[in-house]
Write a protein that binds this DNA or RNA. Structure first.
Length: 698
DNA sequence: ACTCTCGGAGACTAAAGCGC
DNA sequence: CGCTTTAGTCTCCGAGAGTG
């Protein structure tokens, strides 16, 4: 009995009297939508008896699914056996069953039970694309790697764009669908001339860069940046077949490749050897970025955004951010977020109707945007638009678990940077809400957000650890600016010398690190380089504001500052662009001429013995703790994300030695009234301190 | 007592593998 | 090419929960 015959949609009808009995028998084999959903016996009537009894609308609309095994059985079995063998060799437990990998446990469009999607209410795709049920089923779950169909079963499609046929060969159907932001049954973009301009119609094809120039940068991306941006499929992008002819790329694809190459080159900079310039003397990253923007002018890239559109804007953001063009960077980050929101990537419900593989790629991209937006918003004091209301991505079964563990750890870290944090940092949160309890909770959240770093790669470990310390420092600065500070606070983040502890940890984190890990990690502009600068700069300000302190903590702080400045003097294989600004902030602190290059090398102890001890050069009179903290507070409210103390201010520092205040906790934590400090200018700080002292004297 | 839900057994089917 | 194996979808039994 042919199943199709038995499952003709629509009410049962018999064409001839002779066939009536047979037809009735056949049709009785099919349950109506409601009976299927209710799992009750259906007599095949129209309406059927159970539906009549229950007063339900009886219908036979839901199309049957294709039966039988999919894919090449032997290859799948071999793959499973290899995996078991690998796990045995590695001493790992057996690979999880599909049920165990819940995120992908049931990766079909419907759950196994046909009724789970609502028998009377078929899924959105069921009717519109009912051919899905019988068409070539190429969707493969991440735990069930896709095996290309045999030549006989699937002839190669005509070459229009390398992406779709390539996707068909090497990636799940969902990946293929991702190019178009449509369900997997929807044709590739090249078949829809209204959505994107066909490559053959592009008026500027002759201007395109040769496709082969992308591959070296894509390889560099996967070698160094993929751990922190795991948003594209290695199987697709490292295949040379993709890069045979750039005229075969759709505009979306071409723009994406240009943008990712530009971002990769500018982010890795000189820390690795890069391919020669394509059009010297122009730098390749500039060339790629220009090409991307030029190509975008020849088609309507806004009309039908896809995941590629989101990533293109994101990598343009990374390119401009790394080039210190922050207005443009912010624009492209916002554009990327807007595309993501257009695709409903910020709506958890929208993921339910997606192929699970595609859903996972989108989750990763969403969380990358989330992390980047939070980091950038904090750095540039911007507002945020994305929230941690989407489930975090799962691990694809065919990739290293540590990769995504690191990514998820970073996501957790930035999820701890809640909206209150961002608002408080921007200054829009009511100061009364930024109290000691909230600050302690925030610092604690940062500590607890990171789990099981042992299973994370070195690059990711460093990114996570440095980022955590950086966020600790930002929280501490918020505490300072809100008067939640005293000499030896009981909790983290309320101690005056907390930045010294942070610097110590950062020195430990980076001391044994692989140089390339240090160079390449960081998302967008939230690079390690900038975080080190922020931390070192904050430490420099603290040391300046506590000038003259003879304590060991102060001396250690100077030592760590020296080491951090050394790191910045050789990051990415050259002097960091942040070194000079840092040296300016260190001016007069260290006891030697900081602008003289190279810096004295640190010893095992961190400081060159030929340089005198920490305080030997300090003749600057010591300030009281209160004065120090007032000064810090003032700076925290005027600095752009970090304290920015004018170097000449050091000469104006008041001379006082009120160390008796050092250990006295100020219960209120409040030093100045809001009105007193709101408009405080660091240049007027000296005046404020003097006035306070005069009031105390009275 | 009746109705309803839903886990899951077993039937059914098509694709893949295999031997001739 | 035909038979067998495998893996997917299907129906619907019946236990248990809910309701009046």
């Amino acid at each position: 009995m042919a199943y199709e015959e038995a499952h003709l949609p629509g009410p049962p009808t018999a064409a001839a009297e002779d066939d009536a009995a047979i037809a009735a028998q056949k049709l009785s084999r099919r349950a109506c939508d409601c009976c299927r959903k209710r799992k009750v016996k259906c007599d095949g009537g129209n309406p059927c008896t159970p539906c009549q009894k229950a007063m339900l609308p009886c219908a036979y609309l839901q199309p049957p699914k294709k039966k039988g095994p999919k894919g090449l059985r032997s290859q799948r079995v071999l793959h499973m056996l290899r995996r078991i063998d690998d796990h045995m060799a590695a001493g790992l437990p057996s690979p999880p069953t599909p049920q165990q990998t819940s995120a992908f446990g049931n990766w079909g469009w419907h759950t196994q039970s046909s009724g789970s999607n609502g028998g009377a209410m078929p899924p959105p795709n069921a009717h519109a694309h009912s051919e899905d049920s019988y068409g070539p089923h190429t969707s493969v779950a991440p735990d069930q790697p896709y095996y290309p169909p045999s030549q006989s079963s699937m002839p190669p499609p005509p070459q229009q764009s390398p992406f779709p046929p390539h996707s068909m060969r090497f990636s799940p159907e969902a990946q293929f669908a991702s190019w178009t932001n449509k369900s997997p049954s929807v044709p590739p973009p090249t078949s829809d001339p209204s959505s994107t301009m066909s490559p053959s119609t592009s008026s500027s094809l002759h201007l395109r860069l040769p496709a082969e120039c992308f591959l070296p940068y894509i390889k560099l991306f996967f070698d160094h940046m993929f751990p922190i941006m795991p948003v594209i499929d290695r199987n697709i992008y490292v295949n040379p077949n993709l890069y045979t002819d750039s005229s075969l790329l759709t505009p979306d694809e071409y723009c994406f490749l240009c943008s990712i190459c530009a971002a990769t080159m500018v982010q890795l900079d000189d820390s690795i050897s890069q391919p020669p310039a394509i059009h010297p003397p122009k730098r390749n990253d500039d060339l790629f970025a220009e090409e991307c923007l030029r190509e975008r002018k020849v088609y309507d890239f806004i009309e039908s955004p896809s995941r590629l559109s989101v990533m293109t804007s994101f990598f343009l953001f990374a390119y401009y951010g790394n080039n210190e063009k922050h207005d443009k960077a912010w624009h492209y980050l916002q554009e990327s977020i807007t595309f993501a929101q257009t695709l409903n990537m910020d709506d958890e419900n929208a993921y339910r109707d997606l192929d699970p593989t595609e859903a996972q790629w989108r989750r990763r991209l969403y969380w990358l945007l989330f992390i980047t937006e939070r980091a950038y918003a904090v750095q540039r004091r911007k507002h945020t638009r994305l929230y941690a209301n989407v489930k975090q991505p799962s691990i694809f079964d065919n990739e290293e678990a540590q990769l995504l563990n690191g990514f998820v750890n970073l996501a957790n870290l930035f999820a701890a940077v809640d909206d209150d944090f961002v608002k408080a940092w921007r200054g829009s949160r009511k100061q009364s809400l930024c109290d000691e309890q909230w600050l302690a909770k925030t610092q604690s959240q940062l500590d607890n957000a990171v789990l099981a770093l042992g299973s994370v790669s070195e690059t990711q470990q460093m990114d996570i650890r440095v980022t955590r310390e950086w966020l600790h420092m930002l929280a501490w600065q918020m505490g300072v600016s809100n008067g939640l500070m005293w000499g030896e606070g009981e909790s983290d983040g309320t101690r005056l010398y907390y930045p010294v502890e942070i610097a110590k940890r950062v020195v430990e984190i980076t001391s044994g690190a692989n140089a390339l890990a240090l160079d390449s990690h960081g998302i967008g502009m939230a690079s390690c380089e900038q975080k080190l600068y922020d931390i070192a700069g904050c430490l420099a300000d603290v040391l300046r504001c506590t000038a003259g302190d003879p304590s060991a903590t102060y001396a250690a702080g100077k030592e760590y500052l020296h080491i951090l400045s050394q790191k910045l003097s050789s990051i990415r294989g050259k002097e960091s662009r942040y070194l000079k600004p840092l040296l300016a902030r260190m001016e007069g602190l260290m006891g030697y001429e900081l602008n003289a290059q190279p810096l004295p090398p640190p010893t095992a102890a961190g400081f060159d013995p030929k340089f005198p001890p920490a305080n030997a050069y300090f003749n600057t009179p010591r300030m009281s703790v209160v004065e120090s903290m007032n000064m810090l507070r003032s700076l925290s409210m005027t600095g752009g994300g970090s304290f920015s103390l004018p170097s000449s201010l050091s000469s104006m520092l008041p001379s006082l030695a009120m160390m008796e205040d050092w250990t006295q906790r100020r219960p209120s934590g409040k030093v100045y009234d809001e009105a007193e400090t709101d408009a405080m200018d660091p240049w007027a700080l000296n005046e404020v301190v003097i006035q306070q002292r005069q009031r105390q004297a009275i």
